[in-house]
Amino acid sequence: MNGIVEFADRVQGRLDRLDLSPDDLARLARLPAGFIHGMLDGNLPPPRGKRLITLAEVLSTSVSYLVGLDPDAPVPDEYLEEDQGSLGLLAGDEEALLRAYRRLDMSSRAALLQIVLKMTPEPDHDEKKPRQVKAR
């Protein structure tokens, strides 16, 4: 089993134990229902930062348990750091591309990078920028 499926199984187990539906979890955690369903279906990676902490609180469990660590072990910082997308630093399409990219193996990532670089060449730094005329 991979980490995404195991995480989803732990969340579903807590939902079952608390007799909550995924929609109840979305409402109580103030998260989009689509996010909860995508996470439980294994289509989205486990959340990080505030979303992860909120899920643990609503599910009456620890962050350590949800991410598959010993409940007495401290949670590594990487789980508590916010995703850039959740901070609003990326547009929705950029966030979707980044998530898809992260699911690729290394050779697919390298191939995709080559394609993107060919589609969007770097501007030549020696090119003169057009002179802007000041309005009088």
Rank of each mutant, 00 (worst) to 15 (best):
R30F: 08
A100M: 01
A73E: 14
R109W: 06
I36E: 09
T54Y: 01
S64T: 00
E78F: 12
D77K: 15
R27P: 07
G34L: 04
L87D: 01
P74F: 07
P47G: 04
A111Y: 02
D83A: 13
V67G: 06
A100F: 11
Y101C: 01
G88A: 06
R30L: 04
L87Q: 15
D105A: 05
G88K: 06
P47L: 04
M39A: 10
L89G: 05
G68P: 10
P47H: 00
R102K: 09
V63S: 00
A100D: 10
D24S: 15
A110F: 05
L52C: 00
A26R: 12
V67D: 08
L55S: 10
L55R: 00
L97F: 15
V58A: 04
A96C: 02
D23V: 08
A33K: 15
G68S: 00
D19N: 12
L80S: 08
L98N: 05
A33S: 15
D19E: 14
G68R: 05
L87W: 07
L80G: 09
L44Q: 11
Y79N: 11
R103E: 10
R99F: 00
L20A: 12
L31V: 14
L59K: 04
L59S: 01
D24P: 13
E82C: 02
I53Q: 15
P46Y: 10
A111G: 05
L98Y: 02
G42T: 13
D24W: 09
L104G: 02
A73F: 01
G49T: 08
L25M: 11
Y79A: 08
G92I: 04
A73P: 00
G34S: 13
I36M: 10
A100E: 09
D19S: 09
P46Q: 08
L97N: 04
D83H: 11
P74C: 07
E78V: 13
D19R: 14
L40R: 07
H37T: 15
Y101N: 04
S62K: 01
R27Y: 05
A56R: 05
L66I: 09
L52P: 03
E94P: 05
